[in-house]
């Protein structure tokens, strides 16, 4: 079933359209930055955006900071919201279940397919933005070429080795996947509740937007640590020297709790649901 889900994912043009859109945003930003050379003032604009002007190899990290807050969660919410409700509305859900595909298995396959999509999207963004960074901003002080990326300066002003950069990027990818799994779990749960793919996606986005607003609201400080989006940008701490693990660990922990609770709810709901459409 997992193979079938992956085949469906990669046979749908929308997968590539979304990935293309995700890549287009950092590219557009890069073009503007490279032509004007006006860096955002420190503390404003996306993370790493000032740093990339002097070193293009950091651009993948900057690209992550650009797509993560809105674009990536929106696309994950749309796909996850569609995963069960979309099958229900095309009428294929009932045919899968009488094939028979176990209901739990179907959910697991959907989740695997979502993780694959997130990884695929992030990888395309990382690769395109790396190339974009190299081409538009160069490799900074050392001109050794693409084959041997020079050391990059971390945000704290210390240099880290290329291998270290790759490790930190991998950590970033893992952290973002976990964060997006939280989003996917919300939308997947809603997708088992309603037969409207759009409704499920909207519901998940409503949760995220509410959470984003509450994160910035001091009056809501008491619940802030438990909001799903609170630690989304904690992956930036991978680029500090030494790595600041506190928020990363808390963020991953929160997402895991959301994941377990919501997937449990989705599973319990889906297993006992009447497929009546």
């Amino acid at each position: 079933m997992i193979r079938v889900e992956l085949a469906k994912l990669f046979r749908r043009p929308r997968t590539y359209v979304i990935a293309g859109l995700l890549c287009a945003l950092p590219f557009t930003v890069a073009v503007f930055l490279a032509t004007t050379r006006i860096p955002p003032p420190p503390g404003q604009g996306g993370a790493f955006l000032s740093a990339v002007l002097s070193n293009g190899t950091l651009y993948p990290a900057a690209a992550m900071a650009l797509v993560l807050p809105v674009f990536l969660p929106v696309s994950v919410a749309v796909l996850a919201g569609d995963s069960v409700a979309g099958e229900a509305s095309t009428g294929t859900l009932r045919y899968l279940l009488i094939r028979p595909v176990g209901r739990s298995r179907l959910l697991v396959a959907k989740l695997v397919s979502l993780v694959t999509f997130v990884l695929f999207a992030i990888m395309t963004v990382l690769i395109t933005s790396y190339v974009t960074g190299l081409v538009l901003f160069g490799v900074g002080t050392s001109a050794a070429g693409v084959t041997l990326p020079p050391d990059v300066t971390s945000l704290s002003g210390v240099t880290i080795s290329p291998a270290g950069l790759v490790l930190r990027l991998l950590g970033t990818v893992a952290y973002i996947v976990i964060s997006m799994l939280g989003v996917a779990a919300i939308a997947l749960f809603l997708s088992t509740v309603t037969d409207s793919a759009l409704g499920a996606a909207m519901g998940a986005l409503a949760v995220l937007v509410t959470s984003q607003v509450l994160v910035t609201l001091d009056a809501a400080a008491a619940i802030r640590p438990y909001l799903p989006t609170r630690y989304w940008l904690a992956w930036v701490d991978f680029f500090r020297e030494p790595v600041l693990w506190r928020d990363i660990e808390r963020g991953a922990g929160i997402q895991l709790v959301y994941l377990v609770v919501l997937l449990g709810a989705a599973w319990a709901n889906f297993l006992t649901k009447d497929i009546a459409n």
């Binding site: 079933m1 193979r3 079938v4 085949a7 469906k8 046979r11 749908r12 043009p13 095309t90 009428g91 294929t92 859900l93 009932r94 045919y95 899968l96 009488i98 094939r99 595909v101």
Partner: peptide, 22 residues
């Protein structure tokens, strides 16, 4: 059950193959 169900963006043959593989 109540009308056929198929993935509209795929061909009939691919639909059946996916259904078979599922």
């Amino acid at each position: 059950v109540e009308g056929p169900g198929a993935y509209p963006n795929l061909s009939g043959r691919t639909n059946l193959a996916l259904f078979d593989a599922a």
